[in-house]
Each structure stands twice: as C-alpha cells, then as structure tokens.
C-alpha cells in the first residue's frame, strides 16, 4: 500500500502516517497548533481520538473546546432547554472519551462520529428506548484500519464539508433545516445537491473490508 499518490492532496507523507494507531508518536508540535479549531483538519481530529485512547487529557481538552459548544448548540436547536442541553452535552463528550476505542478512522471522520453520538443522545431524550442502530460491524486491534483507507476517508469528509460550505446559500439552508429544523423531508433529499458520491464509495470500500475480515 505504498503507491498512494498523495501529492495531489497537497499533504506531506507524514500526515498519512500520523493516523496509524501503531505509529502514534507524539510528534504533533502542540505549541504551533492554532487554537482556533476551524483551522483543524479532519485528519487532526482523528489524531486526537487516537491520543484520547491513551487517556491523553490534553487532546481531549482541545477536542472538547471545539466540539462541546457545537454539540450544545445542536441540542438547543433540537429543542432542549439550556440545562438539559448542558447535561446532555457533558454526557455526549464523556461518551466520546469512553468510546474512543470504537472509533474507526477508516470509516468515518470525527465530526461524523460525534454527530451520530449527539443525534442518538437527542433521540434518547425524547424516547424511552435507545434508538435502533444497524448491526455493528466489529473491528478491533487485530483489524487495525488501513492507513491509506483512513487517510482517504478523512480527506473525502473534509472535501464534503468544503463542498457543503460552497453550496448556494438557499440550498445550504435547506440541508441545515433538514437536519436541525422541523422541515419535512419530502422534497429536500432531491433538491439539496449534496455531493455524496465519492464519500459513499469510500465508505462502501471500508464496509467491504470489514465484511471480508469477518469471514
């Protein structure tokens, strides 16, 4: 798997290596990291989760500073009052720490993963039972995700985010309403113009790999 042409992504080779679980040298120059999380790439956040697995509180604090206020904003948008949103945000963030082992960077970006945890918490606020989830495709230390898959997944997600940001304002608002508002979904899915093609095939590849390992 050494033939990955990463020059077109404009990223140095070490960026690819940094996401490997087995190669987690603390080489990220913490001091030079810009605290404004907007600058953080999806790659950096995947790196953070891998550090959180080793109970690295500094990494968790940075992740918290970026995501906790957004998770809380999401819960408030979903109808929770201030106190409930705060309580649930803390639970979501604690879940991220506790589930760090289960994060598969070849299958999802950190923002995706955190979104699903926050969304499920939101649904659990409203229901008696936990939300039905698809059967888990297991993976573990013996099935460490391929570094190339991981790198591509994070890249695709970053591109998806950029593409969504670049959508015409009206379309972008439509997508936001579908996720965070009460708008019915009838016409939305067809008209959003979401560029999901590459990320879909990327996820499909990751699923194929997992299914293959399970055989």
């Amino acid at each position: 798997m050494e033939h990955l042409d990463i020059s077109e992504n404009g990223l140095p080779a070490h960026a690819k290596r940094r996401v490997m679980g087995a190669d987690m040298r603390p080489q990220s120059p913490k001091g030079s990291r810009v605290p404004d999380a907007k600058i953080q790439s999806t790659q950096d956040w995947a790196d953070h989760i891998l550090r959180i697995r080793t109970k690295d509180q500094a990494a968790f604090k940075e992740l918290f500073a970026h995501f906790a206020p957004r998770v809380k904003g999401f819960l408030i948008k979903s109808g929770a009052d201030e106190a409930l949103a705060e309580e649930c945000t803390q639970e979501v963030m604690a879940t991220i720490w506790r589930k760090a082992e289960m994060f598969d960077p070849s299958r999802a970006a950190v923002s995706t993963w955190i979104y699903t945890i926050a969304r499920n918490r939101k649904i659990d606020m409203l229901r008696k039972r936990r939300r039905p989830e698809p059967e888990d495709l297991p993976w573990g230390p013996e099935a460490e995700p391929d570094a190339e898959d991981t790198f591509s997944m994070q890249q695709e997600t970053q591109r998806l985010g950029e593409a969504i940001r670049a959508l015409p304002e009206k379309q972008r608002q439509l997508v936001e309403k579908a996720y965070f508002g009460d708008l019915s979904h009838s016409e939305i899915a067809e008209e959003t113009g979401l560029p999901l093609g590459t990320i879909k095939s990327r996820i499909r590849l990751a699923l194929d790999r997992l299914r293959h390992q399970m055989k």
Binding site: V71, S111, T112, I114, T116, L196
Partner: peptide
Amino acid sequence: AAAESFDATGGALIDDLASA
C-alpha cells in the same frame, strides 16, 4: 454507505454550527 454519507453531512453541518 449512503446512510453514513448522510451522517457525514450531519457532521459537516455540526462542525459549522454556531457554538452555544
């Protein structure tokens, strides 16, 4: 794969969401 792509969209949106 399609469902997880929609999750990725949700993630991208939450990443851009105004903080509370």
